[in-house]
Design a binder for these strands. Structure first.
Lengths: 339, 339
DNA sequence: TATTGGCACTCGGGACATTCGAGTGCTAAC
DNA sequence: GTTAGCACTCGAATGTCCCGAGTGCCAATA
């Protein structure tokens, strides 16, 4: 059974190691942290921790380094978080206050998160499943080009350009637009495909080909939203933290370019302690992420959790700070989307 | 005066160094490149080149490495380019064929360019100066929220959300929209601010506050387009090429995060030989780019040069390949935007 | 005059030996 | 349960040596 002090020692080791990037010895430990005991006692505790595989000595006679399991215990017992400094808070606020469109808000939020944490930050686009169609707009761009705009109730707009094989008249566009709107307005996005099933029967056979081209575009637009998008920032931080990865960081870079992988990872995450989900080192089965930690939290749109945001970095990261930052950005983002 | 063969030697040194990343000696040179002379002769040539500061020896007795000046001469004399392989060409085509919206096209193009060159690729958004207003759409999103859509003739759409301080009626929106459209349709974007100068006088004093809020948003939307945006891809490649930079790469990373710097750099570039602009190493006055090369080319929208694309990487890059790639992507991009 | 073979010379880097010290584990005493 | 003391370990830093790729130079040659 682990003593209370042993846990404190573990905590100190993690803190020290995160700060110095060097294996921590018993002496430096008693020097900088005020345990009331001697280094020999700490050594005993460290022996215990090592038995429990919470820390490990890289070389026979050198300081100790936390294991994944050690980090895990550390974060699970992590009571008080490092509160964000006031400049940090104001950075978030000023970055996110202005009422911009969704793209802008997410782009800024992800940058702030990357900056605050010095890690790679990512934010999923809100899922559209529950959003409803506010209106469908058709804007003629040239003789046979029409722009389809799908306006959703959370102020998102999806656009798609349609190239008709033949010229299209203004009246025809107006007619289709009116009929589409009466059909779709207020309906949930998921029901759109089945709603437009028989739509083209409303039109004379001569114009059906044009209508069906248009419907194709509509379906495509809806589908495009199902494949979830992701914004990423701070890939540069990876290079800064390169020293924290013993092996090559290329697998990580590749995972990031392949956003699919990140989306899957985020979706698999479940929030746990402190409302934040964590996968530490080998807890990621994915090869190439063995030395990385992924952190995530959900955020809300109209008081409903719609997507996740998070970050990815070396296992040796400042958990306390990063958890605070992820929480804060998630909270602010939710607040903005609610308005 | 430099002999003809000396130039060939320089060319060979550059090629060899680019490939092997190792200083090039006279022996390896005669081995792999079929000059009809002995290594001693090559050594004489190399001495000349060194006198001209085109190459330099890192250590007293080791092979030579091209200087910035050497690279410059190399590219200026670069006659034949390495043609893209057919898989490379088809990569570009398949990536860029589908008719998507501008965001999508640029995002894909920049990724292709990064992939082809293994460098950091960037593409400026097309300038809007000459584009014309096709229509202005106002879509009501909630009781006092309206979405302003500015549809331009090159199928770009800019959107901005307006929060009115009081509720807004559908008729009012329709009226404003109709009047705005007659005023602005077909007009150049640059003239919009002055055109709407007295617009609010068309309305009863009671609704003028709402109108002016709307006009503010319109001006903002127009302005937002003047600050040029940039898409970047392949930052991961930087880490892969890290070995090519003797100093830290953090200044580079910072420049990339601060897109403003990149935009300025791109704007300063002037295309030269082969239609591509180059800044090699210290030719960039900017600190932190002393070991980097920036390459750029313009691309066209509707047969008019509207913006630049380019890449950034270590001076020790494959110029021949990269110039081909930049040219090719610029050409394809122009072709797509023309359609 | 341009080219070449020959040769002495240089110097970076790898192999190996040595030292230093931070840190450990253990034991005996408190 | 804690502590002082001590022998021990091993990584990292330092020093020495040597090898060989590569150079510059010179005298000989076509």
């Amino acid at each position: 059974m682990l003593q209370n002090r042993s846990i404190e020692v573990l905590r100190a080791i993690v803190q020290e190691y995160i700060q110095t990037r060097e294996p921590v010895g018993s002496k430096t430990l008693v020097d900088r942290h005020d345990f009331g005991v001697s280094s020999a006692t700490i050594r005993n505790d460290m022996a215990l921790l090592e038995e429990e595989q919470l820390i490990v000595a890289p070389h026979t006679s050198s300081g100790r380094v936390p294991t994944d399991k050690g980090y895990r215990l550390f974060v699970d017992r992590l009571a008080e978080l490092k509160p964000l400094s006031s400049p940090e808070r104001s950075a978030i606020e000023t970055f996110l206050d202005s009422s911009s469109d969704l793209d802008e808000v997410l782009a800024r939020a992800v940058k702030v998160l990357a900056k605050l944490t010095n890690q790679i930050a990512m934010i999923q686009y809100p899922a559209l499943g529950s959003s409803k169609v506010r209106s469908v707009e058709l804007v003629s761009v040239s003789e046979n080009k029409v722009l389809l705009l799908l306006v959703l109730d959370n102020a998102r707009i999806e656009q798609h350009q349609i190239d008709f094989t033949s010229g299209i008249s203004g009246e025809f566009i107006a007619e289709v637009r009116a009929k589409l709107n009466t059909l779709l307005e207020g309906r949930s996005l998921t029901t759109v495909p089945e709603l437009i099933q028989d739509f083209e029967n409303n039109f004379a056979p001569a114009s059906r080909s044009a209508v069906s081209q248009l419907l194709d575009a509509l379906v495509k637009t809806v589908d495009a939203n199902r494949t979830e998008k992701l914004v990423v920032a701070g890939t540069g931080n990876l290079a800064r933290n390169e020293g924290d990865f013993s092996h090559s960081i290329t697998p990580l870079l590749d995972a990031i370019e392949e956003q699919v992988v990140l989306v899957r990872l985020l979706n698999e995450m479940q929030s746990e302690h402190l409302g934040v989900g964590l996968r530490i080192g080998r807890e990621n089965q994915t090869d190439g992420l063995r030395e990385a930690t992924i952190m995530s939290a959900g955020y809300q749109d109209q008081n409903q959790e719609v997507a996740k945001l998070g970050l990815i970095g070396p296992t040796r990261m400042d958990y306390s700070l990063n958890i605070s930052a992820v929480q804060a950005v998630a909270r602010y983002l939710s607040k903005i989307l609610q308005a």
